[in-house]
């Protein structure tokens, strides 16, 4: 088969993500573009910086296993019921990766600040946690209104928001339903790339019921149709995660070395 002149599908989206990019990623229960993640690993992407919105799971673990990641900012990094993420743990121990420890609402607030075009937002709570001492970029100041100390978190402005969703229309509007963290991520990022299960004609924005859960094309640079694009992860409302695949991955990743390489190579070789 001859190579197609312009890339499409996962390849087209991955080609728009530069090495070193700051990428906002959804949690496992939301929309994760695993097909694009696989393409990034195939390409040998390097130096990626990931923001978990607000936590990182399978897709980030695979990117770390593929050697693509330099830094993560996240409130948690794990594989759900399977517990810790082996490749991430190993990279952290060896110093191959940096982590900016966060808490879920601080990441949401950082994205909301970017969404509003301001440099920071105040956040309730958190004071009293040792976490603050790990974040020199967070400030505690007196609230000018109440006089009490309040935490200020800086805006998080990702270069790219990448996710997978069930549906888009021919205009490039993407239906995300109630997974509105995807909306926030897209509003905050400079550019958004989305894969979707299917495209339909007409405009989602003219359907009152669907428009409320639709990310307008205004925020979306490119949409590609990739059926099963979240697999082996889950896609909300469409299909569950492939638990056996993830358990097999975790086992290979825990033993590491040749076992992990073999597992990844087999996955990367799949069409």
């Amino acid at each position: 088969m001859s190579p197609s002149p312009s890339p499409h599908g996962a390849e087209a989206l991955a080609a728009r993500i530069d090495d070193g990019a700051l990428i906002a990623l959804a949690p496992d229960y939301s929309g994760c573009a695993l097909a694009v993640v696989r393409e990034l690993i195939r390409r040998g992407a390097r130096g990626l910086r990931l923001v978990g919105c607000p936590q990182l799971g399978l897709q980030a673990e695979l990117l770390v296993a593929g050697g693509c990641v330099e830094e993560v900012e996240t409130a948690a990094f794990g594989l759900g019921e399977l517990g810790r993420a082996p490749a991430f743990d190993r990279a952290l121990r060896s110093g191959g990766i940096r982590i900016r420890e966060a808490t879920c609402p601080a990441i949401h607030a950082g994205l909301q600040a970017a969404e509003k075009g301001v440099t920071f937002l105040p956040l309730a709570g958190v004071i009293g946690s040792d976490l603050i001492s790990f974040r020199p970029d967070w400030k505690v100041q007196d609230d000018p209104f109440s006089g009490r100390p309040v935490l200020l978190v800086p805006a998080i402005r990702p270069d790219i928001t990448l996710f997978h969703a069930p549906l888009a229309d021919e205009d490039g509007n993407v239906w995300i339903g109630i997974r509105r963290e995807l909306m926030l991520m897209a509003h905050a990022a400079r550019r958004t790339l989305a894969s979707v299960e299917t495209r339909r004609g007409g405009s989602l924005l003219t359907d009152e019921a669907l428009a409320a859960g639709t990310l307008p094309a205004l925020y979306v640079e490119r949409v590609e149709t990739i059926e099963g694009g979240a697999s082996p992860g889950a896609l909300f409302g469409r299909y569950p995660a492939d638990g056996e695949w993830i358990a097999a991955y975790a086992e290979a990743a825990r033993s590491g070395g040749a076992d992990l390489t073999k597992f990844l190579d087999r996955w990367l070789a799949e069409p």
């Binding site: 948690a76 794990g78 517990g83 900016r100 808490t103 609402p105 309730a124 709570g125 976490l131 790990f134």
Partner: peptide
């Protein structure tokens, strides 16, 4: 200690999730 802004934990688990915030609210 802290290295390049990252805490160095002898053994790290999954993460803090929303606990630093929710616990006080």
């Amino acid at each position: 200690g802290v290295a390049e802004g990252s805490p160095v934990m002898g053994k790290r688990f999954i993460g803090n999730f929303g606990a630093p915030y929710l616990a006080s609210l």
